[in-house]
Simulated assay, not measured.
Amino acid sequence: MASTLGTPRPDQAAYMLRAAASGAGRVYKRELLDLLDVRTGQTALDVGCGPGTDLPALAERVGDDGTVIGVDRDPDMLARARERTKDLRRVEIREADAHALPVEPGTVDRARIDRVLMHVAEPADVLAQLRRATRPGARIALAEPDWDTLIVDAEDLETSRAFTRWTTTEVVRHATIGRGLARLAEQAGFHVETVLATAPVFRDFQDADHTLGLGRNMQNAIDAGHVDRDRGHRWFAGLSQGPFFASFTLVGVVCSR
């Protein structure tokens, strides 16, 4: 058996762009953007904008009289975001942590946070920053997965369950934030208007390995003694032989200030 499993950790920007371009990614992003109801002349904020995946769509909706602000703390991500939006007027890229948004209080009409809160140190503090930045009547769109709902079909069901437990306890900082997203938004002082739940489906093993980190995370679980080595290798080999199925729950919340 091979000493390591699956693909190496992908370039983060390429990973985000590929996820956004997938069928499931396009569907939920379009739905949240439509519900956000961005209008001409508004100021729209994308917290954790990454390589600028969603900035062009926001810029199209605010028009020439509006402003789009993309915030991220990673200089490499910001460089790609600037390159991606270099021909777009009214797009501003700012380097900062989500816990200290570089935005004047009460100046944002529309805001979005997409799969970022699961990684930050204090999600509640980030939402408090967002409330400070937004105007009364502003709309906010949030999207986060619930990795506790990750299911991977395999004959060895217990190892699939062990993989999910490893993901939720060791891989993602706030792995179950999706289920608490509406509650956190209300606690931050927002009025929750819409709660959505979608279940992205993976039928292609290679795509799932890239997106879900099946191999690399199983290898880490084996190295940590969380899963028996031979059992983990057999599990991964069985997945690669197909047919394949995996899914998880992605929660979207749209709220107002």
Results as ranks from 00 to 15, higher is better:
26 R>E: 12
3 S>F: 03
219 Q>S: 10
4 T>V: 12
132 R>A: 02
161 R>W: 09
22 S>P: 06
168 T>Q: 06
180 G>R: 14
202 F>H: 15
45 L>E: 04
141 A>M: 03
17 L>Q: 15
182 A>M: 14
18 R>K: 08
250 L>Q: 13
208 A>R: 10
201 V>N: 06
161 R>D: 11
190 F>M: 13
208 A>F: 13
210 H>L: 11
127 L>P: 12
20 A>T: 13
177 I>V: 14
175 A>L: 11
141 A>D: 00
75 P>M: 10
124 A>W: 03
57 A>M: 02
70 G>N: 00
187 Q>S: 12
237 A>M: 06
251 V>A: 08
156 D>H: 11
90 R>T: 04
97 D>T: 05
126 V>R: 03
25 G>S: 03
84 R>N: 14
53 T>Q: 02
168 T>E: 05
116 V>N: 05
197 A>D: 01
127 L>D: 13
67 T>K: 08
100 A>C: 06
220 N>P: 00
72 D>Q: 05
180 G>E: 14
71 V>E: 02
53 T>P: 09
58 L>K: 10
179 R>G: 13
54 D>W: 03
224 A>K: 15
8 P>C: 05
75 P>K: 01
166 W>V: 11
126 V>K: 02
75 P>C: 07
209 D>V: 05
198 T>A: 12
214 L>K: 15
55 L>P: 01
155 E>D: 14
19 A>D: 10
249 T>W: 13
202 F>G: 10
15 Y>C: 02
42 Q>K: 00
134 T>M: 12
41 G>E: 01
62 V>K: 00
25 G>Q: 09
74 D>P: 00
136 P>N: 13
131 R>M: 05
242 G>F: 06
111 A>C: 07
202 F>W: 14
180 G>L: 04
17 L>V: 07
107 T>S: 11
233 H>I: 14
49 C>G: 00
11 D>R: 05
32 L>V: 12
60 E>F: 02
257 R>I: 11
195 V>A: 12
206 Q>H: 13
177 I>L: 14
101 L>V: 11
97 D>G: 14
142 L>E: 08
251 V>W: 06
169 T>K: 05
177 I>W: 04
64 D>W: 07
193 E>H: 12
95 E>Y: 02
135 R>V: 11
147 W>V: 08
169 T>D: 06
61 R>I: 00
62 V>T: 05
230 D>H: 14
84 R>D: 03
226 H>P: 00
36 L>S: 10
60 E>S: 07
137 G>Y: 04
4 T>L: 10
145 P>F: 01
36 L>I: 01
128 A>R: 15
184 L>K: 15
24 A>G: 07
202 F>A: 10
180 G>Y: 08
187 Q>A: 14
57 A>N: 01
87 D>W: 03
42 Q>W: 04
79 A>W: 03
173 R>T: 09
117 L>Q: 05
19 A>G: 12
214 L>V: 07
229 R>L: 04
50 G>I: 06
129 Q>T: 08
